[in-house]
């Protein structure tokens, strides 16, 4: 029965992906992509990975979807003006078909072979995690892996995020900083909903962060929820990014800096890089996680808000056509 459900779910996932790939209309492809993210979150639940489901629902379906829709809207706002381009959008060029076909089939066969001849694991990672989790300072195995056993990954990940947002800031046109941009439209209903939902969203984010030490949840999911809340706020017409720009920039680097400081300062006591002293591991991990949540949320939000606003352009365009 469960397998039947999984097979249907997997096929639905595949069909949604096919919909993304084959739909003529870009907006439709993006909507299909969001549906794909939601189905993937369900798949993670079925794979016994609730952490991934949380992250996928907030990031894969939520944030990525918003980013893509924003990009498509930006494109359409500008495309309307030079419509001779429209015809070029969806066609595939007259290029040889053999390259895509060979790469597709080759990848498929190779990966199937890799799955068929999967090597036996020499060590059992779940056993190792279980044996050492008492010393890690947290009870939830995934948090233990992320913040203790493989904390290098997490440290480098937050560094990668920081680099991404720095590059995004560097690419931002300087003109965007001017103040005479039209204020975003205030919609009373959206405004009201945001005002009521925002405390709940922040609370959920903090709860997910707190819960991460003993059950599914943690810095990444909490950060994603925080980012979603900020994006929601921005879309509802509150100009979050203009209220506290300098504070925002400090927050971007805070997670990485705190993590690095902790990682290095333990070396004073003669320990290797990135190990926690006994007895303090739990507190240190939670402290780092809290800072990481803040930074991840702000970084993901900044990656969204670095995009030039375009809603005005869309409005003008519609108005022009209506005349």
């Amino acid at each position: 029965m469960n397998l039947a459900f999984d097979i249907v779910l997997g096929l639905a996932l595949l069909l949604t992906a096919l919909g993304v790939f084959s739909s003529k209309d870009l907006f439709r492809a993006v909507v299909m992509f969001i549906a794909f993210g939601l189905l993937l979150a369900l798949v993670w639940v079925r794979l016994d990975a609730p952490d991934l489901a949380l992250a996928e629902a907030a990031i894969g379906a939520g944030l990525t979807g918003v980013l893509m829709i924003d990009a498509v809207a930006h494109l359409s706002a500008n495309t309307l003006q030079n419509d001779q381009r429209d015809d070029q959008y969806d066609h595939s060029p007259k290029r040889p078909l053999w390259l895509p076909v060979i790469s597709c089939v080759g990848l498929f066969v190779l990966l199937l072979g890799a799955i068929r001849f999967r090597p036996e694991a020499s060590v059992s990672l779940p056993d190792m995690v279980r044996d050492n989790i008492a010393e890690s300072g947290v009870e939830h195995p995934i948090t233990a892996v992320l913040l203790n056993f493989r904390s290098y990954d997490t440290l480098l990940e937050i560094a990668v995020l920081l680099v991404a947002v720095v590059v995004a800031m560097a690419l931002k046109p300087a003109a965007e900083d001017r103040v005479h941009q039209p204020p975003p439209a205030h919609d009373p209903i959206l405004h009201g909903l945001t005002a009521r939902l925002l405390p709940a969203m922040l609370l959920v984010g903090m709860y997910v962060l707190w819960a991460g030490s003993y059950m599914p949840g943690g810095a990444f999911q909490g950060g994603a929820i925080l980012a979603a809340a900020l994006v929601f706020l921005q879309l509802a017409g509150f100009a979050v990014d203009r209220y506290a720009a300098s504070l925002l920039r400090l927050g971007l680097a805070l997670g990485f800096l705190v993590f690095l400081t902790v990682a290095v300062s333990v070396m004073i006591g003669g320990r290797p890089f990135l190990t926690y002293p006994e007895g303090f591991a739990g507190q240190l991990i939670f402290f780092i996680e809290a800072m990481l949540t803040l930074s991840i949320g702000l970084i993901l939000f900044s990656l969204f808000s670095q995009n030039p606003p375009h809603s005005g352009a869309v409005g003008h365009q519609g108005a022009n056509h209506d005349q």
Partner: peptide, 13 residues
């Protein structure tokens, strides 16, 4: 939990 943690990192990246 190890590949799950890696994938969690991967999703955010």
């Amino acid at each position: 939990p190890v590949p799950q943690a890696l994938v969690l990192t991967g999703i955010v990246v």
